[in-house]
Design a protein around this nucleic acid. Sequence first.
DNA 1: TTCATTTCGTTTGTATACGAACGATGTTGC
DNA 2: GCAACATCGTTCGTATACAAACGAAATGAA
Lengths: 151, 151
Amino acid sequence: MSRSGSSKRSAKPSKPSYILDDQIGFILRQVWQRHAVIFGREIGINVTSTQWAALSKLAETGPCSQNLLGRLTSMDVATIKGVIDRLTARGLTETCRDPDDGRRLLVSLTRLGQQMAEKAAPNAAVITKETLAPLDANERETLMALLSKLR
Amino acid sequence: MSRSGSSKRSAKPSKPSYILDDQIGFILRQVWQRHAVIFGREIGINVTSTQWAALSKLAETGPCSQNLLGRLTSMDVATIKGVIDRLTARGLTETCRDPDDGRRLLVSLTRLGQQMAEKAAPNAAVITKETLAPLDANERETLMALLSKLR
DNA sequence: TTCATTTCGTTTGTATACGAACGATGTTGC
DNA sequence: GCAACATCGTTCGTATACAAACGAAATGAA
């Protein structure tokens, strides 16, 4: 029942026509920010969501070249390098040259990294659940399906 | 018709159970990345999506304190400062102290900034449309409604 | 084999993004 | 009027994020 929006009494308020808050890009950023807050509160092992992407993907695939890991986690080559550098500095990952291909840098989880991945996996599932908590089961499924089309 | 997923023949593949690619956080990042590509290609005035958020919100509201502008665009105080610094350095915005409140920094669009905002607004609408192009009209509406619940 | 092409990793530069600490300024309770 | 409190802007440090340029290594075609 809100007023029609672009008119206030009989004045001419220059019809905005582009409202930032209605744009998908802006909404995506806000939803992402909310997710980041939930992530930081729940993950429990002092890693960022980006670092967690690398960790959990390594746990899924096993040792993997830095470049492939970047593609699997949708990270730029420069970004994945920084992430792996920091994870390695903290002893969660380690690297060695691929003996079969001198260009590749093989990345693997250390024992500590595996422990962390196992410890945080349940928390990560909780994060997903909490992020979607405002939606019911049907809505969650619908949202995931629609977002997947926009990847 | 893919196999049930966590079983391969009769072996025990350690049931992954946490698959990064199925998590809302990871999907959100990918959708955001795709949007960023479309944005960069279509906006037409050499600003980032963050800078565009500040510009278009200023065009909506008129002059505004840096702090409020940050809240309206969902930016941290440090982030909005950097954005306004760069926009001001390029002559798209200008700032002055609020005469009514010595703490506030009033931010406003320059004439050039207004021209840019007017020039880019149609492109920004196209960006929204292109981002949602894989969906039909019903799906678009559903997605926006669901995402809005997660803000 | 040799050269063009591709792939991989690194580095640099710019732009978010945010926590934390700080000083300056306003407001409020008393 | 003043002391506690809140707000605003700035700065620092860390962590993505990506374009662009570069060298090393592998691959393919001639």
